[in-house]
Design a protein around this nucleic acid. Structure first.
Lengths: 151, 151
DNA sequence: CTAATGTCTCTAGCAACTATAGCTTCAAGG
DNA sequence: CCTTGAAGCTATAGTTGCTAGAGACATTAG
């Protein structure tokens, strides 16, 4: 039986984070010692490692919650898990594309900022001017109010 | 003169976000109409577009605050802006590397999850097992408690 | 037995917004 | 001129995924 500190050490997760996961229902309430301290078995360690990994891979906690509920009934089809993973993959690809554009932009900014004064420097300008921007996040002309998801 | 709604539309920023930026001091307090409504000129639009771009490029608001303070005094050296951009570039490169590893992991997971049942599916397994993980976030054996600054 | 560490609960804070409530102001139509 | 509906106002609370602190109790090493 592990105390919360040992568990956190074993899984690479901080102690308050474990309590947080319990609080939001990702981890079940563990046994308690005579003195009311949490005691965990190896199953809790597995589950926590799972969560830790999934978080490292960028899964939001809600997706992890779904994944865990799937793993709790292993006789079902894994199509649902597959879908979750694929959604994450798409999100990750989008993030990479975005960051790559961003990297080019920053490199250009740095190249053009050749130790002059800011008046000569385009760092500010690049960020102010839509026309210089590789990305097309400007409001489309005639698109009206886009009150939708900006995330 | 633009109302807050028009400004938001023009810059692609939601209205409450503009008020939030004002609240935290990224945007100056604008003029008000007779009826106490905010009125913005084109300088505010530039500034907001700047912020929007910088946010899109992943700059934290504090870095943007620095950048804005630089652009407010354009006779100084742009070395400081250069440093900020370089720091961001490093962070961006790191994020791309991390996401690329992550993408490989997810693709592997999806490949191995070949529409069987979860018992046959490695999505869960991949996330449970450290040994299958490309990343090395497990606690080093013999490293003891890493109670140091994790942030 | 004592001292130091670990754990307990609870609350508050971080970034960077977003959403709600309840009111006032503005612009356009009748 | 007046009404109506959208847009604006302030203020507060919620979101996500934790992290940090206070003050009290438990456990363990010496």
């Amino acid at each position: 039986m592990l105390t919360i500190g040992k568990l956190g050490e074993a899984a690479g997760v901080k102690v308050p984070t474990i309590r947080y996961y319990e609080q939001i229902g990702l981890l079940p309430e563990p046994e308690r010692s005579a003195g009311n301290q949490r005691l965990y078995g190896s199953k809790a360690l597995d589950r926590l490692a799972f969560i830790r990994h999934a978080r490292d891979l960028g899964f939001p906690l809600e997706a992890i919650r779904d994944l865990l509920s799937l793993s709790d009934k292993p006789d079902q089809s894994c199509a649902a898990a597959d879908i979750i993973a694929k959604e994450q993959l798409e999100a990750v690809k989008a993030r990479i594309a975005r960051l790559t554009a961003l990297k080019a932009e920053l490199e250009r900014m740095i190249t053009q900022c050749a130790q002059g004064t800011i008046a000569d420097c385009r760092v500010i300008e690049v960020l102010s001017d839509h026309a210089l921007c590789a990305d097309d996040h400007r409001p489309k002309p005639g698109a009206g109010a886009e009150s939708g998801a900006t995330t």
